[in-house]
Design a protein around this nucleic acid. Structure first.
Lengths: 210, 210, 210, 210
DNA sequence: CATGAATGAGATTTCATTCAT
DNA sequence: AATGAATGAAATCTCATTCAT
């Protein structure tokens, strides 16, 4: 009875391919947390993955595609984390606190993905005046924040202001993260960062005009 | 008395060279605030400076040297700014507030230099475990912060803790900057950021054990 | 018994690479016998080898490495030739004659390699006062000559004198070669060069103090 | 009476120019005896001459011209030396001996010029089949040797054979020189090289068909 | 599918030469 | 006449991508 072996409808080859793809992504994420995208060569990645250089091109159209994939997945994971609450926050303040907390948790659990997302690239983009040049995943990320927040806002509010809010959250989070990274104990984090987060939330509320 | 006439030691050619060097640095700073170091080509810089490609190499050994020079000068400027106070702050809190304010002023006056310094590079370095791998200018910057702060600290304090403090300041400043960049009016900044800064300072004091 | 089938350790790709490497070396040797090392461009070589420019860099770290490789191999071949005698020469004179003859044979069989080795570079080096600056292959060559000759010499002989002997052989060989190159028939060579060689050997013996 | 000062019809500026030109040639000769022509940069020369880079172009059309000038002068000096005999040699043997001796003397007195002339370049050219590509000075040198020798030869002799003779002399001289360079005392030279020269002359005579 | 040798476009870098002073 | 800053053509070298096996 070959039932068992048939269960995974993927052939052996397909499974192998999937594993290879995963190895490549893992290796790329590792390398990108040490070198910039431009400074990273395809060989850096395939070597770390212990695979042939050509193999990367079996799974990704080009070097860019693997980063885009990684960024997309990282954004997915971050958004998942944002969606993760037991009880929906009731106030704007509570939602903003939740957002900051979700980012913080994400940065702790998926350090490499966090670094990839916020590695200057995002922030630089955020500061550029040409916001519409942002590619899809970053845009998706910002829109998710806007979506979450806008539930609590008057529909008449200036859309640009909401976009700025989202940028501020992203920017702050990176400083926040750096602060948290300095090796504090969880107790220190509790006593030091929590109030900081609360005040930041207050500032944001002020910015939104209460 | 030919003393006076000897004074201008620079020949015309040397002055021209100095001007060219300045043009190159200005152009490079401009470009680096738009593209990453790796993505920037030597031609991007010389074209922006309206100079021949070879000219860069008359003034800098290679592409790297111009960035290092720019980073060094930016650190110099930032440190100058840190030294700039009418009355020395009297307490640790006051000093920390001064530091954050100096960074903020610097980021406003020299946006490009600020971006260059904090463009991922520093923060990435800060997060790496090998803090002593920081090269000279970044190290100098951190040491300057440590120096300023340590005046107010017990000499017995753990050096590592002070280093972490400096890193936290640097990290926070970047988030701070991102926040400020979102296009707030100075009034908004006053009402939103000042309290934020104050709370951050409190957190730092707590971290330092009062 | 799969032992046999495992024997050819090289994969097809590796064999292809080896062939390419050989093509490159052949092409470089050809070009170097027409242009000087400095005047030769990487493209000269790869074009002659009918390969892409980048291919050279897959096989050699840089332009220098291919020359070094060629020199090393040429020295190897010359030394092999020096080792090639049916009966070991019995006297110093016989050995010196053998050495000169080996050089001559080498220059006839491997004209390009010979030219590469003696193309000014060696001789220029020989004339420099800093003999110990000779790099490895040339040094190895000189030492081989010294080794062969010293068997016939008193161990008390001044090492410097033996080194000079080796240099003299190398220098003479080049003039010798030039002389032979003028298009003499083998008969002419027999009648003209042989006595010349014999007298040179006598001179060397005199130099060594009998 | 300004007679004295008028005697050198050159103005001060012209004299200075002459001096500068001489300094440049001296410096170039020095450098060329250490680096190959291609490896030598214009700055190597002007720096050694302690002059500005542009100055070289006041005196020579381009980098090539300074080498050509040096080679021409060196050939002039060598030919002068060849012309230098008290009593014209009476036989072919005597003339060949004289020629070799003149080369040897030249190599001793003007080491740099000798090296420049024989630095592979000449010999490489000599060996190439395209003898007519030899530039003027080298050709002039060969013709001078041919001229000197042909006095003693039947006018019917094959011109190619005479050319080969000249090449053989040149080639031998370089080996000869290398041999002499090994630091022998003049006594050693007397006892070792003289007989060598004599035998070489004999070989040449044989080659010329008596 | 996986491979890695081969490729060439494009980057960095050098340096002979020009030219304004 | 001397200078050296500026230049850009041409060299070296890198690396993303292709492709035959």
């Amino acid at each position: 009875m070959p039932v068992k072996t048939k269960k995974p409808k993927k052939t052996r080859a397909q499974k192998r391919a999937k594993r290879t793809r995963k190895k490549l992504k893992k290796a790329a994420l590792d390398v990108f947390s040490q070198k910039s995208f431009d400074a990273t060569t395809v060989e850096d990645i395939t070597e770390k993955a212990d695979l042939g250089k050509g193999t990367l091109y079996q799974h990704f159209a080009d070097k860019e595609e693997i980063v885009v994939t990684l960024v997309e997945e990282a954004v997915d994971h971050l958004i998942e984390r944002i969606h993760l609450y037991d009880v929906p926050p009731e106030t704007l303040e509570a939602m903003l606190e939740h957002l900051l907390n979700a980012h913080y948790q994400f940065s702790m659990d998926s350090k490499e993905e966090f670094l990839l997302l916020f590695q200057g690239k995002l922030l630089l983009k955020l500061q550029s005046d040409t916001l519409d040049e942002l590619e899809e995943p970053y845009l998706r990320y910002l829109e998710e924040i806007e979506l979450q927040v806008s539930k609590y806002l008057s529909p008449k509010i200036n859309a640009l202001k909401v976009r700025r809010l989202a940028c501020a959250v992203a920017g702050f989070v990176f400083g926040f993260f750096s602060f948290a990274m300095i090796g504090m104990t969880s107790k220190e984090i509790d006593t030091s960062i929590k109030p900081l987060r609360r005040v930041f939330v207050k500032s944001l509320c002020t910015f939104l005009g209460r």
